Simulated scan of single mutants.
Amino acid sequence: MKIRILTDSASDLSDELTKKFGIDVLPLSVFLGDIEYKDGETIEPKELYDNMRAGKVYKTSQVAPQEFKKKFEEYAKNNESCIYIGFSSELSGTYQSSTIAKEEILEEYPNFDITLIDTKCASGGFGLVVLKAAQMVMEGASKEDIVKATEFYAKHMEHIFTVDDLEYLFRGGRVSRTAAVLGSLLNIKPILHVDNGRLVPLEKVRGRNKVIKRMMDIIEERGVRLSEQTIGMTHGDDLDIALKAKKMMEERFGCKDFIIRDVGCAVGAHSGPGTLAIFFLNK
């Protein structure tokens, strides 16, 4: 039975990779006022970040259950097996939508072979988990082995990131107004990570250059065999800062394989321009 990998746009995978590995992607919705856009389909990161810099505020919405059901029905009719690998349930209701759709589709197609995985990951870290599963499908691995590996990768995926302006995290309810104002005045850059699917502050560092150097220290403390890994890196329309971090990882850890992407619109609407995130497997 053919195995299909389904994910959502918060995985921030390029069209090139999704096509190469046969990954289906459902887009989250991004709203500017009453106008709805589909992440990666009708709005691209550059437009979003330019507008955010100009003061426009975006909101996001989960993938609806009916969108999942359409995909599930397509697979069921084709007698295909499905593994949905989803955005952290702590950051979006998208995974919950998939569970609703699963219940509905199994009423109509009780023999449909479907597995849902809540990665508790986001952006490039989430994308690396999806990519691992898709690679295993192409290699002919069993569904059981793919699910086990996916769950392992998700559990051990580190997200170390910083944002350039705390204002965007304030708008998303991640920090207080006082923290956002003081951060701007004092040039404070937070370092955050993802713990059990939630965004959690780690440290505060003053200055952009210092924060990247400190991120490297944290990566060294947490990473394992970094030179052998594919390192994920996403940025908020700031390729220069990502390339600077890449060079530091090459020189310090001997890393050779990178996937560098913009933070997509669904995540970037909350993290803002200038975000830098680095993803790798921990110890």
Rank of each mutant, 00 (worst) to 15 (best):
P201C: 08
P201M: 10
D195M: 09
K244C: 08
G173L: 05
L199V: 14
D240W: 07
V267H: 00
F258S: 03
C255W: 01
V267R: 03
R171W: 04
V175E: 02
K213P: 01
C255P: 02
G207I: 13
P273H: 10
L226M: 10
G223P: 03
T162S: 10
E250T: 13
F253Y: 05
E251L: 10
D257Q: 09
R198M: 11
H193C: 09
R198C: 11
R174E: 08
L169N: 07
M233I: 15
V175D: 05
G272P: 03
S271Q: 04
R261F: 04
M249A: 06
L169H: 10
V163F: 05
D164Y: 09
D217V: 12
L202V: 13
I160N: 01
K213T: 14
L186C: 08
E158A: 10
G268A: 13
A269I: 08
H193F: 05
V267Y: 05
G274A: 04
E158V: 09
K213V: 15
R177E: 11
R225I: 12
G254N: 04
R206K: 09
L185V: 15
G254S: 10
I260Q: 01
K189E: 07
A179V: 14
E228L: 10
H193M: 05
P273I: 13
D217M: 11
K204R: 12
L169C: 06
E251R: 07
C255G: 03
P201L: 08
K256N: 14
R222Y: 06
M233L: 14
L199K: 00
G264V: 11
G272V: 09
D238G: 07
T162W: 00
V224L: 05
V175S: 03
D237I: 14
R252T: 15
H159S: 01
M233N: 05
V224N: 04
T234H: 06
E167T: 14
G183I: 13
D262E: 15
A179L: 11
D164V: 15
K244L: 11
L199Q: 00
K244G: 09
M249L: 14
V211F: 02
V200G: 00
S176L: 12
H193W: 05
I231K: 01
V263P: 03
G254H: 06
E250K: 07
A180S: 14
H270A: 11
Y168Q: 11
R198E: 12
I188K: 02
A179T: 13
K246P: 00
N187G: 11
D195V: 14
R261M: 09
V181E: 08
F253Q: 06
M216C: 12
Y168N: 06
E203N: 06
Q229C: 05
G274L: 06
V200D: 02
A266L: 09
R261T: 12
Q229D: 04
S184G: 09
R206C: 09
R206F: 08
K256T: 15
G254D: 10
M233R: 01
I260D: 01
R261E: 07
K247L: 12
A180K: 02
I231H: 01
F253P: 04
I218D: 01
V181P: 00
